[in-house]
């Protein structure tokens, strides 16, 4: 049975011209707000990225336009490329782990009895509602070198001695801890969203597929996933954006341990350049690069979805 037959067909309703105009009119207020709160700061950011703008300029020194100097500075800086690569790899790992775990939890919730489902949902909501900084501090204590519960538990295994092991001083295990914290806090959003989508799939379809002898994996691959594809798309985009510009968790973890220079990600790097070092022009240029990067990611998915709609 192919997908086309399952999904109810849509009928396009002919719209009158005045209705169409009304549609454009209704878009005006939202567009105006977006232009004001997003367009204006963005224009300022772009202007800033072409200026020599440090603390002296904040206090009234003359502002000089320096063309692409900020851009050539960052693009020829090895440090920037290291940070960019690190951020991309880290975001990829976290997005994949979040999506896999989140989807599995959502599928699980679809099968377990109601009481357990409510318990799982409460657990997820609590994890989600926890302020990021609080989460990092709690996890940080669990991985603490001297008092951490992980070191204690691991050391209970015969022949294993993790006392005094520092999880954050090695960049790889630093990012392991960071990925764990971020995944832990992102899974609830993914799981609840996908679960909500799952509840909208008519039971009859699943039943029909089951009767036709489709395995669990086949039912997911050929039925559930295509139906929920728009949800997956938007959740993945959101995760990519959030994970690429991750700030709080990395910045706070750096305060708990680890080597700052080897663990900076894009968000932290922009913060340190702009507010830490007072080089607002340079930080602005890095931010513009990040905007372009993330817009490209978003545009790719928007294009894909539009193509899907046309089919």
């Amino acid at each position: 049975m192919s997908l086309k037959q399952i999904v109810p067909s849509r009928k396009a309703k002919p719209q009158s011209r005045s209705r169409k105009n009304l549609g454009w009119l209704l878009l005006v207020p939202a567009s105006a707000v977006l232009a004001l709160v997003i367009g204006w700061p963005l224009i300022n950011l772009i202007i800033l990225s072409f200026q020599e703008f440090g603390r002296a300029q904040v206090f009234g020194a003359d502002i000089e336009f320096i063309g692409f100097e900020n851009y050539s500075n960052i693009l020829t800086d090895d440090g920037f490329w290291q940070v960019l690569n690190r951020s991309l790899v880290f975001a990829a790992v976290v997005v994949v782990s979040t999506m896999v775990v989140g989807t599995l939890v959502a599928l699980l919730m679809n099968f377990v009895p109601k009481r357990i489902k409510v318990l799982v949902q409460i657990g997820l909501l609590v994890a989600w509602a926890m302020p990021q900084l609080t989460a990092v501090i709690v996890w940080g204590w669990m991985f603490n070198t001297e008092y951490g519960v992980f070191n204690y538990l691991l050391s209970q295994i015969p022949g294993v001695d993790f006392y005094g092991h520092s999880w954050l001083s090695n960049p790889i295990s630093f990012f392991g801890v960071a990925a764990l914290i971020i995944t832990w806090q992102s899974v609830p959003f993914v799981a609840l969203t996908i679960y909500a989508g799952l509840t909208q799939i008519p039971k009859e379809m699943i039943e029909a597929a089951w009767l036709d002898g489709a395995s669990g994996w086949q039912r997911f691959k050929d039925l559930t996933f295509p139906l929920l594809r728009p949800i997956f798309t938007i959740v993945i985009i959101l995760q990519i954006i959030w994970d690429l510009r991750v700030f709080t968790q990395i910045y706070a973890l750096q305060g708990l341990g680890g080597l700052r220079e080897e663990t900076n990600t894009l968000g932290v790097y922009i913060y340190l350049t702009s507010l830490g070092s007072g080089e607002f022009g340079l930080g602005g240029a890095i931010a513009v690069v990040m905007v372009v990067l993330m817009s490209a990611v978003s545009a790719f998915y928007i294009k894909r979805t539009l193509e899907d709609m046309d089919n």
């Binding site: 963005l42 300029q57 985009i237 931010a287 990040m290 709609m309």
Partner: peptide, 29 residues
């Protein structure tokens, strides 16, 4: 599908917001 696309424009827009906060201090200098 339609809603997803609308939301995605929101996402694209919000991408931008997240990155512009670093230069807040430059206003009114």
């Amino acid at each position: 599908r339609k809603s997803a696309v609308v939301a995605m424009f929101g996402v694209a827009a919000l991408t931008l917001v997240g990155c512009t906060t670093a230069e807040d201090t430059t206003s009114g200098s």
